[in-house]
C-alpha cells in the first residue's frame, strides 16, 4: 500500500515536471523573436490577411492567459508541435520523428556499453581502493569525465578514421552502399565511433560514482559479516556489495539522461550523424525555433519518463523502498 502511494507520488511528480516544461516552452514561444506571426511578418510576400489568418489560427488574437496557454497545451498534447520554418512548413513532429532512430541507436548502445564498463571499472577500483590499480583506474575515469564529448569524438576520428583508416570518418552509411546484411555492417561501421565516443564519455562518471559507493559499502557491517562467513572476495563483491552499491547508479543513470543527450547532440555534429543533434545544429543556424522547441520538449519528456522508469526499477531493487520503509 505504501509502495502504491510512493509510486503515485512519483507519477504525479513526473506529470508536474512535464507541465512545467510545457509552461517553459509556452513562455519561450511567446518571448522569442521567431514566434509564428513575427516570422511571417518578416516575409514581404506574406499578406496582412494571411498574417491575420495565422494569428487567428494560432489563437494569437486571444489573451495570453488563459486562452493562448490552454490552446498551446491542448495543441501540444494532441501532438501538434507546430511547423518547421526551415523545412518548408513541414510539421515539426515529422521533421523530428525521422531523426529519433539514429540518435536512439548511438545513445542507447553507448549508454549500455558505458554502464557495463563503468560498473566493472568502478567496482574494481572501489574494491582495490588506495592501491596502484585504483589510482590508474580513477585517474583514467577522471580524464574521461573531464573531456568534452565532441573533443573526444574529434580525437577518435583523427586517430581511428583519418590516421589508421579503420573506420569511416562521418555519415551513417556509404553513399550508394550495399543493402542487406552488408548494409547493416556498413551502418555499424559508421556507428562504431559515435557509440565509442558516447560510451567513453560516460564511463568516467559511472566508474567514479560506483567506486565511491563500493568504498562506502566496504565499511558496512554486512561486509564484515560476509567476511566472517569466510566467503570469497568475488562472492562478497558480487553477492553483497554490488546489490547495494548499484542502487545509486540506477538513479544517476536516469538523472544523467538529459546530460547524455546534450553530449550526444554534439557527438552527432562531429560525425555528421543524421540524428537529433545534427538537426539541432541546423535548426539553430536557421533559427528554426519550432523545431528547437519540439526537440527540447521531446527530450524533456524522454528524460522524465527515463527517471520514472528508474524510480520503478529502484523500487524493485531496493526492498526498503518496496516496503515503504523510510528512505
Amino acid at each position: 500500500m505504501k509502495l502504491r502511494g510512493w509510486l503515485l507520488g512519483r507519477v504525479g511528480g513526473a506529470l508536474a515536471t512535464i507541465l512545467m516544461v510545457l509552461l517553459l516552452n509556452f513562455v519561450l514561444f511567446r518571448l522569442m523573436p521567431g514566434s509564428p506571426d513575427r516570422t511571417l511578418a518578416r516575409n514581404p510576400r506574406v499578406s496582412a490577411e494571411a498574417i491575420a489568418a495565422a494569428r487567428v489560427r494560432w489563437g494569437l488574437d486571444k489573451p495570453l492567459f488563459p486562452d493562448q496557454l490552454v490552446a498551446y497545451v491542448g495543441a501540444t498534447l494532441s501532438g501538434d508541435f507546430g511547423y518547421s520554418v526551415k523545412y518548408g512548413g513541414r510539421e515539426v513532429t515529422s521533421v523530428i520523428g525521422e531523426k529519433i532512430a539514429p540518435t536512439l541507436l548511438i545513445v542507447g548502445l553507448g549508454e549500455i556499453i558505458a554502464l557495463a564498463a563503468g560498473i566493472a571499472l568502478g567496482a574494481w577500483t572501489g574494491w582495490r581502493r588506495g592501491k596502484f590499480g585504483d589510482r590508474v583506474g580513477t585517474l583514467s575515469a577522471l580524464i574521461l569525465y573531464s573531456m568534452p564529448y565532441f573533443w573526444l569524438g574529434m580525437l577518435l576520428v583523427t586517430l581511428f578514421a583519418t590516421t589508421l583508416g579503420w573506420l569511416p570518418t562521418s555519415g551513417i552509411s556509404t553513399p550508394g552502399g550495399p543493402g542487406g546484411v552488408a548494409g547493416i555492417v556498413d551502418l555499424l561501421r559508421h556507428a562504431a565511433l559515435p557509440i565509442a565516443t558516447i560510451a567513453l564519455g560516460l564511463i568516467g562518471q559511472y566508474a567514479i560514482l560506483l567506486r565511491s559507493s563500493v568504498a562506502e559499502a566496504l565499511r558496512e557491517g554486512y561486509v564484515l559479516t560476509a567476511r566472517a562467513k569466510g566467503l570469497r572476495d568475488d562472492r562478497i563483491l558480487r553477492g553483497h556489495i554490488l546489490p547495494n552499491a548499484l542502487l545509486p547508479t540506477v538513479t544517476l543513470a536516469a538523472l544523467n539522461a538529459g546530460y547524455v543527450i546534450g553530449g550526444a547532440l554534439t557527438v552527432e555534429i562531429v560525425f555528421s550523424w543524421p540524428g537529433l543533434g545534427l538537426l539541432t545544429q541546423e535548426a539553430l543556424q536557421s533559427r528554426d525555433y519550432p523545431v528547437l522547441q519540439g526537440i527540447f520538449l521531446l527530450l524533456s519528456i524522454s528524460v522524465v519518463v527515463a527517471n520514472l522508469l528508474a524510480d520503478l526499477l529502484y523500487s524493485r531493487l531496493d526492498p526498503r523502498v518496496r516496503h515503504g520503509a523510510a528512505r
Partner: peptide, 10 residues
C-alpha cells in the same frame, strides 16, 4: 533532470 543544455541552446 531536464536536458538543460538543450534549453541553453534555445
Amino acid at each position: 533532470i531536464l536536458p538543460t543544455f538543450v534549453l541553453a541552446l534555445i
